[in-house]
Design a binder for these strands. Structure first.
Lengths: 240, 240
DNA sequence: CTGAGTACGTGATATCCGTCACAGGGTGGT
DNA sequence: ACCACCCTGTGACGGATATCACGTACTCAG
């Protein structure tokens, strides 16, 4: 198969290595085969837009490779990044199920492989495969959960420092680095993007980082970030 | 049947008048009967707590009568009200499906009638009734949608005035008053609670209302609120 | 009626942070 | 190598709003 943007294409869900731990991958073979028959494997370059908030739902996008930025944006251009989706996630699911417009905008930030399924095909698939439908409910619950966390972070932490601290801790826990004494993580986002994730301005992020470094809580080596004082960061995350 | 807190109890989902337009009410009779057999009809007084954020999910609560306040709260006691649930809504759904802790706290603000279903029973019910499962997915999508709107409101509208304007417009559209020239609505919440809905302080809400009245945009008669200048309110809701 | 409790109204003050402005350092293209 | 262009760092300034503090009005029980 072609490898349009430097991707090794995963041919089939049946042989995909992530099958065990991902939604839609962990289904009875019959359901998976049905899914295979309605999906369109597609590849996108970095910076492609899968869908835009407000669009009528065309279908779902199962992310197989690469990362996708999920964001909402205000009329004045201000943007809020809700999450960076990772392989295995299903994008556009809730809009496709409910028939309402996509709530978010999805834009690739890496070259990505995506399985697209048209709305009609997907709904028919769900009606015919009860176990898939249940999976969808689980996945939606998960998304709802994440959204609630976001709401909590935005609504209850009134200082930007608190939100940044929360974000860093969350990242370090994702990397499986959190239990280490001094977790490390790669900063794959610009200050601007980090600002958009916590709803603040670029300058504030820069200043916060400067402050955290001065206080010996963080340290940077190139684009690698070391958390030198986890406890301090954690206390920043829970109070102002 | 008993009417513990001044409620007329709805005996059965099969004869419930809301059946047509509500989730779980609009199901094939077979599924509804199965649902009947696992549900516990309960009544709560005002101020009762159905579940608390962080609790392991015991099951779902279908709200039949009364209103329920859904909120999250920070360790320091600061509270954010996400929504006021109305009859027909299913509470605790996503936690029950995913098995994760309840994301929110649910507290009645009226005397309420509720149908409770234990988690195990509910999950079994879902596996056996594909159409119910699909309904659940729809319902979860809806909740996700609302959460996204909340995120947008919290994260992108940086002024409190904007959020208040949005809230008032949303309320007036719920009441079916929105198309009128001068929509009216009953203010059933205190300033404190409104503040908690838009993530600001009580005093700010008071001051905003005062300002809106001074500018002839709003007018109050007792607890009734009249929107005198819809256009102005709408422009406040989209800009600062 | 009276006092306690709760909701509302309003001023003074401090602070966080968004915005503007500019400067330095990387990086990639031609 | 050179020039754009983007990212980062930092100062100055002002505005929105949280917080504190207090006074007023309303409700409800005794």
């Amino acid at each position: 198969m072609l490898s349009p943007y430097g991707l090794d294409i995963i041919e089939s869900c049946l042989t995909c290595k992530m099958r065990a731990d991902r939604i839609f991958c962990d289904l009875p073979t019959a359901a998976l085969q049905a899914f295979e028959s309605i999906k369109y494997a597609t590849a996108y370059p970095k910076g492609a837009v899968l869908f835009v908030e407000g669009q009528a739902p065309r279908g779902i996008f199962v992310l197989c490779k690469g990362r996708v930025k999920m964001s909402i944006c205000a009329c004045d251009g201000k943007t809020l990044i809700l999450k960076i989706a990772e392989p295995g996630e299903v994008l556009g699911l809730s809009a496709t199920v409910s028939g309402k417009a996509y709530e978010l905008t999805a834009e690739t930030i890496d070259p990505c492989q995506v399985n697209f399924v048209k709305r009609d095909d997907f709904l028919r698939f769900l009606k015919e495969h009860g176990d898939a439908c249940f999976k969808v409910a689980e996945q939606l619950s998960e998304k709802y959960n994440v959204a609630c966390h976001e709401v909590r972070a935005l609504g209850l932490s009134h200082s930007a420092g608190e939100k940044l601290a929360k974000l860093l801790l969350e990242w370090s826990s994702k990397n499986g680095e959190s239990q280490k004494q001094e977790p490390r993580l790669k900063l794959a986002l610009t200050h601007e993007e980090i600002a958009q994730m916590i709803g603040t301005s670029r300058e504030t992020v820069t200043r916060l980082f400067a402050d955290l470094k001065k206080r010996q809580i963080l340290q940077t080596k190139g684009s690698t970030l070391v958390i030198r004082n986890k406890a301090a960061l954690r206390s920043l995350a829970t109070t102002g």
